[in-house]
Design a protein around this nucleic acid. Structure first.
Lengths: 133, 133
DNA sequence: CAATTCATGTTACACAATAACATATCAGGC
DNA sequence: GCCTGATATGTTATTGTGTAACATGAATTG
């Protein structure tokens, strides 16, 4: 029943910690810069770690930003679909899931014989705290 | 009542026609290569045309592919949300919209005071025609 | 210990997008 | 007609994002 958090390698740990420290999404190159002192020298070191972390479900990729965030809900890999509300002013990302949307997308896919491998749902806009009034 | 299809400039027309001819999404650089004979020399010529076409609603951007498609449904800009089912095998893109998902996202946003500016819904997977059996 | 597998390091490159600046075209007002 | 402001275009250079190819190192297993 315990969510098996796989043992992370040194690089995976470094990248994951960098994302966990950050209060918003980071680009691969920003991560690289933050990890220079830890011996990181090339983008591939970041991308390889990210690939694994994505596979483990510990990290999400925000397609519309070309950036990455640590998963906010450790058990969210139960859900087929994870949505993100991304504030374009402060950069905060709010992670959510919704069964209705999930079902709706699933039945849409099934009706067309489409087999989804990955689902992306991203809202770009302005969060409550950043709104004018 | 007629959908005002704005007059396109020469470059906008060329880019739009290239996307309309294609049977799938094209990257900006692929478009550039196709339009070399028409005098295109730099990425900016493509990106500037794409920006306008996106604003007109004649073209969509697929965030998860960094690519662009001509809008399949000329009047789809009525919808706040447009979804895409993208086949990773054949590259075909199926454009859809769904009021239930739209409503659900809208009420989610409203509940949190989030004001969405752009909504991305993309399914990556395999279409019926490309499936094994 | 050999063989395999997986993680890592490094260089170079390809693809995606924009900055900055110059020129041209076209509309309306005088 | 001509000035003027707005929009479209052309060009060079640069930044940002991601991968190919190849070599090395470390761990697991038979």
């Amino acid at each position: 029943m315990t969510a098996e958090t796989p043992d992370l390698t040194k690089n995976q740990r470094l990248v994951f910690d960098a994302l966990s420290r950050a209060d918003g999404p980071l680009s691969a190159y920003t991560i690289l810069d933050q990890l220079r002192d830890d011996g990181f020298r090339a983008p591939l070191q970041v991308y390889r770690a990210l690939d694994k972390l994505l596979a483990f479900g510990l990290v999400h990729r925000l397609e519309s930003l070309n950036a990455f965030v640590a998963c906010a809900h450790p058990h969210c890999h139960r859900h087929a679909m994870i949505g993100f509300a991304i504030c374009e002013t402060c950069g905060q990302v709010d992670e959510f899931s919704d069964e209705v949307i999930e079902d709706r997308l699933a039945s849409f896919a099934q009706a067309r014989g489409f087999v989804p491998a990955k689902t992306t749902v991203e809202l770009r806009g302005q969060c409550a705290r950043c709104r004018p009034n």
